[in-house]
Design a protein around this nucleic acid. Structure first.
Length: 243
DNA sequence: TATAATGTTTGAAC
DNA sequence: AGTTCAAACATTAT
């Protein structure tokens, strides 16, 4: 479920409920649910992997982590963490982390850090990367403070596409190559979005979960890399190791 | 059936 | 006191 593009899809799917009044609330979420009742949704937003339901004076933040899911005008067997009922239908959220953010949503988020946001600022990302020269690029790409919305699939696909070894050190990657990585992180996120909408995301994976490099036919290495120990799929031959 | 996976927070240990 | 890291949590497809 997660990764920024999937949240953008959710935002689009619930758009018909924007401006509508929540007439009832249910679920296991440990928040003051009464607060939502009889309130109109001001807007649905997203910041990276955060799905945001903005109301008057506060915002509900939903994070799907690894296993979260949602259903619109449908339910499943397990109990929802949060259900929002409207006159027009319902939205059910499962297995997610829910939190209330007080006040103006803009005071909580820097939109320029979200690769999917129109305010995305690649120069700022580059500046932040300069501060962490000793980190591996596989960890850096997953830093939500730098690349909000980028997840493990995007990480692997970006690095394969720009031919950079996941264990490369940020400080050793030439500036021009770094710019390429940053640009590809945004570009691939939108490719991800479009392919996911067409339900053909996996078809376009070049490295993630792959066994063989389609460029040179050598094996794709699967390894848990970096401090974050997330799995990386890469070609030792085609991806340059900057160390 | 056991395992692993698109993720993050927490609190213990250093 | 600051950093680091393993554990905890959740669900579903293979």
């Amino acid at each position: 479920m997660p990764e920024g593009p999937s949240i953008v899809i959710l935002k689009e799917l619930v758009a018909p409920f924007a401006g509508k009044e929540i007439i009832a609330v249910e679920g296991d979420a440990k928040i003051d649910q009464e607060r939502l009742e009889n309130q109109a949704v001001k807007s649905f937003e997203s910041w990276g992997k955060h799905f945001l339901i903005s109301l008057e004076g506060f915002t509900i933040r939903i994070h799907f982590l690894l296993f979260g899911s949602y259903l619109i005008n449908e339910r499943k067997a397990s109990k929802p963490k949060l259900s929002l009922f409207f006159k027009e239908g319902e939205i059910n959220f499962y297995a997610c982390a829910i939190k209330v953010l007080e006040g103006d949503i803009n005071s909580h988020y820097d939109w320029s850090g979200d690769v999917m946001n129109e305010k995305w600022d690649s120069k700022k990302a580059k500046k932040k990367l300069k501060e962490i020269p000793n980190k591996m690029i596989c960890d850096a790409l997953l830093e939500q403070e730098i690349f909000s919305g980028v997840g493990n699939i995007i990480k692997n696909e970006v690095l394969y596409r720009v031919r950079v070894h996941p264990k490369s050190l940020v400080g050793k990657i030439p500036s021009r190559k770094m710019t390429e990585i940053i640009e590809e992180a945004q570009k691939y996120s939108f490719d991800f979005l479009n392919w996911k909408k067409k339900n053909e995301l996996k078809k376009h994976w070049l490295a993630h979960t792959k066994k063989t490099c389609l460029r040179c036919n050598l094996p794709i290495i699967k390894e848990y890399t970096g401090v974050k120990k997330r799995r990386s799929f890469y070609c030792e031959n085609c991806q340059k190791f900057y160390e």
